[in-house]
Design a protein around this nucleic acid. Structure first.
Lengths: 239, 239
DNA sequence: AACAAGAGGTACGGTTCCGTACCGAAAAAG
DNA sequence: CTTTTTCGGTACGGAACCGTACCTCTTGTT
């Protein structure tokens, strides 16, 4: 498939797959952005102002209830787009979303994207598949939260983050990892030590480097992989 | 809003909200069905043949991975419709779905529903909101699985089932409850005893009756309620 | 250089829940 | 009415993880 000139160098899978005839609807409205860690993308129950197509970095989507329990329900990187509710016809964010790992990308005003989806069936179909990919990820998270051990969940998260990075270094603290997994910070520390001892990762303050990815996949076992495989099927990627 | 004659007596919230001008697209193709417990609705990775609009009963949607870990990611009753992937443009089921509590409803061939959604913007918007309601439920399940105690999760499930029943009796075994919550059968038995001792429920073999719903809500606390509230907002119900 | 703040290491008692197993009671099948 | 199956009650050791706390390093900040 030919790519429009404007998309040369674009890594985001969704933008990549926007049909040529749909590009005029959104391309001109994309604004390049640099996103620092902890930057807020969406606030629960508030209108979504922009959708972000990441190039690099990781967004954490975190469910929060009214007693302040919180847990990550999914991550979004270069393979997807934020603002799933918009695709479903709702303009309010359901969950908290923020940059877990800083990066870059493009954003588009919510109303422009909604209008574009209304105009083009093919664009809407693409966005819907992206949304479904996220649903699958959320379901897998529910499975992992209910069934997997801390170590397996940690492995799963590292793999998902690693997929979305361009290097093997994953910059994040035990503290935030604990929040996302819904466990104690001390528990994360101990689990990471286990990984380190087995030569799967190396660590520095605020950073963790993947050394032996297959080894980590072995630990995550079948808790990792399903959403990734399904997304490829949905978007028809061959690589 | 006026209801078409054909819909008199329909309890399903989605069918109820189908606009008059959209009714011709699906109404004539609805087939009344009686659904017995354990009846299979969807099989993972296989094409979805029909979508079910339940009147009474509960469908369990269960994520299964390739090592046979399984856990319920959501339930569907009279408030929704099965076959979420179809709404998202995919014809394959992602999860296992089966009747957890027998009931009645109407079903429609998948291709008819897909065609109808393609023809009508308003119908599609309605179905998308239903799908989003399910997404919210799945996210809340991920939260509960990661953060809640067994007792709280049990309370949450009972409330969700109770919402979808027409009586206070919920027919199910500890065994299946355990599968859905992803815990031991023995654990469920003990937790139910606790409820019974506190006068929240009464039990018989294969059945459980809700006696003190507010008491159960107190236990579930904020792990119950969010998806229910949000679905009302999405569908604009006032009751 | 001194200080404060953040990140990580470690420990300990306590709780929750698992894995497993065995038994009796109720319902279904013959 | 007997046999078989399903369902539920109960127990026990053990694993996983929590809540909490305290201390030590880094890494910025002043």
């Amino acid at each position: 498939m030919l790519e429009s000139h404007a998309r040369v160098g674009i890594r985001n899978r969704i933008l990549h797959k926007v049909a040529l005839e749909d590009w005029d609807l959104i391309g001109p409205h994309l604004e390049p952005v640099t996103l620092k860690e902890r930057q807020v993308i969406e606030v629960p129950h508030k209108p979504i102002t922009h959708c972000y197509f990441l190039e690099i970095g990781v967004v954490s989507v975190v469910a929060v209830d009214n007693e302040d329990h919180r847990i990550e329900v999914g991550v979004i990187g270069y393979e997807g787009v934020t603002g799933v509710p918009l695709i479903m016809g709702d303009n309010r964010a359901q969950h908290s979303a923020y940059m877990q790992i800083g990066g870059t990308g493009h954003r588009i005003p919510a109303d422009v994207l909604v209008g574009a989806i209304a105009k083009s069936d093919t664009l809407r179909a693409l966005m819907l598949k992206s949304a479904q990919g996220f649903m699958i990820q959320t379901a897998q998270t529910a499975l992992a939260n209910g069934r997997a051990k801390l170590e397996q969940r940690l492995a799963r998260w590292l793999l998902m983050a690693h997929d979305r990075m361009t290097s093997d270094a994953v910059p994040l603290t035990h503290e935030f990892l604990a929040v996302m997994l819904g466990v104690r910070r001390a528990g994360v520390t101990v689990a990471i030590h286990g990984f380190e001892r087995r030569g799967l990762v190396t660590t520095r303050r605020g950073e963790l480097t993947v050394v032996n990815r297959p080894g980590i996949e072995l630990i995550a076992s079948s808790f990792y992989g399903t959403p990734e495989t399904e997304l490829k099927r949905l978007l028809g990627d061959t690589k």
